[in-house]
Design a protein around this nucleic acid. Structure first.
Lengths: 216, 216
DNA sequence: TCAATATTTGGTGTCATTGCAATTTTTAAG
DNA sequence: CTTAAAAATTGCAATGACACCAAATATTGA
């Protein structure tokens, strides 16, 4: 058997993982993060507690499983910038696309407030999200160091990374807050676009022009 | 009896609290945060576990007790800005003073690397520090909203607060990293001043001039 | 010295998380 | 189809943070 065909075992593992995440998320949305125990999740999913831990190292992972693959989003925006675009240009352009498209990747999606409420009520989840943010930042720092070809020791790429990361986190924080307040995604999307203009207006020239890719 | 005289009870409480924090910090520095249990701390301090919890709500508080009173530091810088100074001017000036003075308030102090190592090895502590950062940011947001007299709904004060907070966190992150690498405080202080120049150079005009206090 | 008040403590319980050994399932090979 | 190795699941026990409560002690002002 080759690497192509996916064995029964692999399929069942993915299913079990998904099932666990779904069941757990459902319970969290219903009753809040802290009020649900791992034992309950296991019972509801019809597996043992140990099996839960086989798939998810911590309780937080059960809820944040969906939010993976975000770590390198900003880096990809920067690497994928067009000719003539700076790193900041690319990030702002891509973020505007996400916001205009009312994309869940920036927290725009009906019913997102329910997720927000769960997060707001659990410090453990907040801590975990901040951890993810740190990873995003570090990833972006390395990316900008490479993309800018700066000499080691030059703090500029790290500083610009910090600024671009701030743009992103400020945007998502705003969206999260507004969605948590119960506003509609379309409405928040409109306001977020204005906010992005304000943010761009606040950035320094150096930041806006950093790592500009040669035109043509 | 008046509020002046401090009774025996008050004195003993402060002593016990300090003693607990000292004993705990000593153990943490020796063996790391996770490797020390509350029970051990209680035993070493010759009190019961419950008494520890009487003074410190969580294990993290035992280590981070010293770092209190930081929440409104940035806000105080802004409120205390001189005539002719903008909010950013004041923050940059005060930070330069702290850095030049090799002040422990920005993490400059011989032996600080040991604290850093404890923090690096414990996610719970990192999470706690991020939480403090959030409080600093929120505090600064309110302050700038007041100090700028912006209409409610204007996002500018919040955005500028984010930028000033970024300046501060970038500086302390840099210092923390360098100190953790085992470099001397005086040396790191010098480099940090250069970094502050780079940071200032990166900020936008709008940020640098926000909430400027009328001269004279 | 007494009674009100605050502090300490021991006991008990919940829950996340880990380690381990026994058991069951899946897979690949014969 | 049988089978032995590999992987997954499970039960069981233990650790440690933290909460709750009632009994025991210490401190205070009167």
């Amino acid at each position: 058997m080759g690497a192509m065909a996916e064995g029964l075992r692999e399929r069942k593992k993915r299913q079990t993982r998904q099932h666990l995440s779904d069941v757990a998320t459902g319970l969290f949305l219903e009753r809040g993060f802290d009020a649900v125990t791992i034992a309950e999740i296991a019972r509801a999913a019809d597996v043992s507690v140990n099996t839960v831990y086989n798939y998810f190292p911590t309780k937080e992972d059960l809820f944040l499983d969906r939010s993976r693959g975000i770590v390198d989003r900003l880096s990809r925006y920067v690497r994928g910038r067009d000719r003539g675009e700076s790193a900041a240009d690319a990030v702002l352009r891509e973020l505007r696309i996400q916001v205009e498209g009312v994309s869940p990747t920036v927290g725009l999606m009906e019913g997102y407030e329910r997720f927000m409420r769960v997060i707001e009520g659990a410090d453990g989840l907040k801590a975990r999200l901040w951890h993810v943010q740190q990873e995003v930042l570090q990833h972006l720092e390395s990316t900008l160091q490479e993309e800018s070809g700066a000499e080691p020791g030059d703090p500029t790429p790290v500083l610009v990374a910090g600024q671009l990361h701030w743009v992103h986190s400020t945007l998502t924080a705003y969206i999260g807050r507004e969605m948590a307040a119960g506003r509609g995604a379309a409405e928040v999307s409109r306001d977020a676009l204005v906010l992005l203009d304000d943010i761009e207006d606040l950035l320094g020239e150096k930041v806006l022009n950093y790592a500009r890719r040669a035109a043509e």
